[in-house]
Design a protein around this nucleic acid. Structure first.
Lengths: 418, 418
DNA sequence: CGACTTTCTTCGATTGGCGGAAAAACGAAC
DNA sequence: GTTCGTTTTTCCGCCAATCGAAGAAAGTCG
């Protein structure tokens, strides 16, 4: 009903960062000018929209340009990584106003992690950049999130977290809505709203770091599959005779290009007497390998190019199977840029059967270090844009538990709307 | 609006083949009883629903059971295969009332194929089974269908068809709506509506015959990807050191289990002096291999079990990447039944990282020989159920060209409804 | 300076769904 | 058998929300 059209208009206004007139809103939404006018006045009363300036006339009365009020609220996104917690304070455009990243042993220390997140959120709340009210808290977790039991992390990957009800605890601590989703899905959502996936209805985001995971955007929505684990590209086979993976198989993508494997490959080469500037680094990390590759080290470049080729096999299979318009590579390995991308693209081209697959774009995420934390923030943003009532009901009911999917059957009317 | 809710109710009634009362419709659809009553009376006036009988009371007034009128129209589905044309005459339930299959060199003879289809349609129209009016004609084609140029078949796979406007010509010939889609997508749709995918929102159908293709059902809708070629599982790599594929790569799934490969493997073994009942068959076909495997021939069983294992690798990758609730195997190879399925499931279990993947069901299509032709018919059925106006506008406008996707943004109101 | 355009608002009119009342048709209890 | 309660279905008035037409506002253009 009304709220649905209001949501459409709000989304249109949000998408037009440069501003949009009522007349253009009516055209884009396919609604009558009168309807748009009444809804816009509601949205302005709610401070979601505000008129920005008057654009030059196009032959008649000059249009009043409306802007989505990105300062109305702020959002906090938190990335729980394998070995760090990152936080990003964002406005409603998804722009990062402030961020931090702290080393922490997340998998093995749930209480400490919860405390750390609480402190970081408190810190963010009092930052001068935090304008308006806190709209919600988004958390990206390094494991699949099941739609059935959304507030339980995977006991298999994170046994220590098995009994922790993350969203509930953080809601209790912070008193705002808490949204939880898998990190790769968050990354995909970030790209969809503020990154390389803007305006693209079907793409896949691949995060390559400690693990390798993918998030699919299908018809503009995050796709979770049947039990919420779609995107486990890390354990698809890319080389049946490849390295042994922690999952027990051989040649999983993750076993070839996950940070553990990359570092292992470097160690093996060093042990084999290979000349490299990586030798002598005490605790070799993926960041070291990437940095030295960029600085020109031959071994590091080789390892990364190799990773690119392996990733290319997985991407080619993905393209054949799902045919996304674009594949966006993120995660720490993606900071290697062209060193990774060029061999990747080459492999994809070699393995692409269809010209349309060949034409599919493979790019590196433009969102940088905070990518996943931004994605966590966009969980809140997307939810609020899809259901504007979240903007006016600040406290109320329980933390939103599920990785909320917009209900697939849209139902007109229906009993008991708010 | 109204028509949308009418569509919801019609779909509910269709889905309840045993019949459903107005009160239950209201409950299931979340609409008020009064609204349901008015819409139902419209649908009954249009002869889409009819009251069937009165069910026993559940303590109050006994409910009038309504049934979707599956005899109101009939549908014709046509499968264009690599070497045959199959036709299925279906009622609105998707049940096959009559079918035929004719050998024909489809790829190299467009005019003859069009003529043949025309004759088959004419034959179907005068069958006694054809009740009511012809609702539409669905065509399953053995190549991807692009949303941009829906009425052009792939010039790469079917060069002879490059200039043929299939849907337009058939519309001209038959004067009914023509719907065209890829065969694997048709197969998936058939499973969704009348096969092993009923009630499952996310599954994948894999057709294994001459080629190997998949059709995805995502959130209850056929998923085509960006350029309409999603599901090209046949050219994902399952064994980097495997057989050479016609696409130039090695170890594509199709190169391992496509009918060409299966027959080739049989010939190789026979040439190698292997004892088998397949030896001596003049023109060995996939059907022969399947039949002899069922009859107990060791070589045939081996080849099929091998195909099952290879398919298992592809299915495992698919499960990891997309996490469908079920994978349905169809196509001629699937007639081998357990001989294919057992090794397939074993491979999947070995390669499944997540318990939910492990639990995913892999089954054989229950729809048999006419599966794809039924799928072509369900193209029409789905379109009409999604847009009831197709039921009352028999002739009118151009043939429906695109593999119609339900528009992703649902818009309330909007100008100019019918 | 008038004609024309484009934008935006105001004002009925219409559509369509909802809630409640009422009718219909039954079971159960006394 | 009468009465009461229940479930199904219909009828009626109300309300929300959109649209179209008309008009006001604020320009451009010749």
């Amino acid at each position: 009903m009304r709220s649905h059209n209001a949501s459409i208009l709000a989304n249109l206004a949000w998408a037009h960062a440069e501003g949009i007139s009522r007349a253009d809103l009516a055209r884009d939404a396919g609604l009558s000018a009168s309807t748009v006018s009444t809804i816009v006045s509601d949205l302005m009363a709610a401070d979601l929209l505000s008129s920005s300036h008057i654009a030059p006339s196009r032959g008649g009365r000059p249009p009043v340009v409306l802007r989505f009020n990105t300062q109305r609220n702020y959002i906090i996104g938190v990335e729980m990584g394998a070995s760090h917690v990152a936080i990003a304070l964002c406005d409603l455009r998804g722009a990062v106003l402030w961020s931090r990243s702290i080393h922490h042993d997340v998998p093995n220390d749930p209480p400490g992690t919860l405390r750390l997140i609480g402190e970081l959120v408190d810190e963010a709340k009092v930052r001068p950049e935090a304008q308006g009210e806190l709209l919600g808290l988004g958390i990206a977790v390094p494991c699949p999130v099941d739609g059935q039991t959304p507030d339980r992390l995977s006991p298999r990957l994170l046994p220590e977290w098995a009994e922790v009800r993350l969203a509930a605890q953080l809601h209790h601590r912070t008193d705002v809505r808490v949204f939880v989703d898998n990190d790769a899905n968050c990354g995909a959502l970030a790209e969809a709203l503020v990154g390389a996936g803007q305006g693209i209805s079907d793409f896949t985001f691949i995060k390559v770091a400690t693990g390798v995971g993918a998030g699919h955007i299908v018809q503009g929505q995050v796709y979770r599959g049947f039990s919420g684990i779609a995107g486990e590209i890390g354990h698809t086979t890319v080389d049946a005779n490849g390295r042994r993976c922690r999952c027990g198989l051989k040649g999983c993508l993750e076993a070839e290009i996950g940070s553990g494997s990359v570092i292992e490959q470097a160690h093996e080469a060093i042990a084999g007497g290979r000349e490299t500037s990586l030798a002598g680094i005490a605790e070799l990390t993926l960041a070291d390998v990437v940095a030295h590759a960029k600085a020109g080290d031959a071994l590091a470049r080789e390892i990364i190019a190799d990773a690119g080729s392996h990733l290319g096999v997985g991407v080619a299979n993905l393209l054949n199977l799902l045919n996304p318009a674009r594949v966006i590579i993120g995660g720490r390995l993606s900071h290697a840029g062209d060193l990774l991308l060029i061999p990747l693209r080459e492999t994809v081209r070699d393995r692409a059967l269809w010209s349309s697959v060949e034409r599919a774009e493979v790019v590196i995420s433009p969102l940088g270090q905070s990518q996943i934390a931004i994605g966590a923030a966009t969980l809140v943003l997307r939810a609020a844009l899809a259901d504007l009532s979240l903007f006016w009901a600040s406290e109320q009911d329980a933390p939103v538990p599920a990785p909320s999917q917009v209900s697939s059957i849209w139902r007109m009317g229906g009993r008991g709307r708010g």
